[in-house]
Amino acid sequence: MLTLLVALSDGEQHGYALIDHVEALTAGGVSLGPGTLYRTLQRLRVEELIVEVDADPAAERADRRAERRRRYAITEAGKAAAAKELRHLHALVTSEQAVRLLDEARPKE
């Protein structure tokens, strides 16, 4: 959920672009399938963290597939929720315990 909100903070996108964006943001660590993606997008819509936006008419004329693509944008509530979660995550990953765990898990040369 957080990764999708971060991806949408770059601007509105359609579902398959989001799959690629999430994979790039996570350096391949998260790979979303269509089912997971669209279930999560629906949940984010219900929670009003994202909205579905109307397709660009010029893009529709240029690419007939564009009219079938649903595009999504993050809402102000979504930005606030993502920022709050990122602050919590930042506090966690910079904690003494997390740093120690990362050091212990680092491959030895």
Rank of each mutant, 00 (worst) to 15 (best):
A105Y: 08
G15I: 05
K108R: 15
G33F: 01
D56F: 06
L25D: 11
L18K: 09
E76A: 14
A105H: 04
L92C: 01
V99A: 04
H21A: 02
T75H: 13
I50H: 02
T75M: 14
L32K: 11
R65D: 11
T94V: 04
V53S: 10
V51F: 09
L2F: 06
A27R: 13
P34K: 06
P57N: 02
R106K: 11
L2D: 13
R70M: 03
E76W: 09
I19V: 12
A62S: 14
T40L: 07
A55V: 04
R43H: 12
Y72D: 00
A58K: 08
L37D: 05
A58M: 08
A17D: 12
R106E: 07
G28P: 06
E67T: 15
I19T: 04
A27Y: 08
E23G: 02
R45T: 14
E12C: 09
D103L: 11
L49H: 06
A80D: 13
L89E: 08
K79V: 06
D63P: 14
R61F: 06
V99K: 08
R87F: 06
M1Q: 04
E48D: 14
V46K: 10
M1D: 07
A80S: 15
Y72V: 01
R106C: 03
D10M: 10
L102F: 09
K84A: 15
G35H: 05
T36P: 02
S9M: 05
R45L: 06
I74D: 01
L101P: 00
A66T: 08
R43A: 13
H21N: 01
L5P: 04
H90F: 13
E109N: 11
V22N: 11
E52N: 10
A7I: 09
A83V: 04
E60P: 01
G35N: 09
Q97A: 12
A7N: 12
Y16W: 07
E85H: 09
E96K: 08
K84R: 11
S31Q: 15
T26E: 10
V51R: 15
A83K: 12
G29W: 15
K84I: 08
A77R: 15
V53Q: 14
R64Y: 07
D103E: 11
A24K: 14
P34H: 01
R61W: 10
G28H: 13
D63L: 07
V51H: 13
E12L: 03
I50D: 03
L49V: 09
S9V: 07
R65N: 12
Q13I: 05
R39V: 06
H14M: 01
V6N: 01
A98L: 05
R100T: 04
P107N: 03
A82G: 04
A59E: 14
L4H: 09
I50Q: 06
E67D: 13
P34M: 00
L37P: 02
E48K: 15
L86A: 08
R43E: 15
L41T: 03
Q42V: 01
Y16Q: 07
G78F: 12
R69D: 00
L41R: 03
T26Y: 14
G33Q: 05
T3E: 14
K84S: 13
Y38S: 05
E48V: 11
D54G: 15
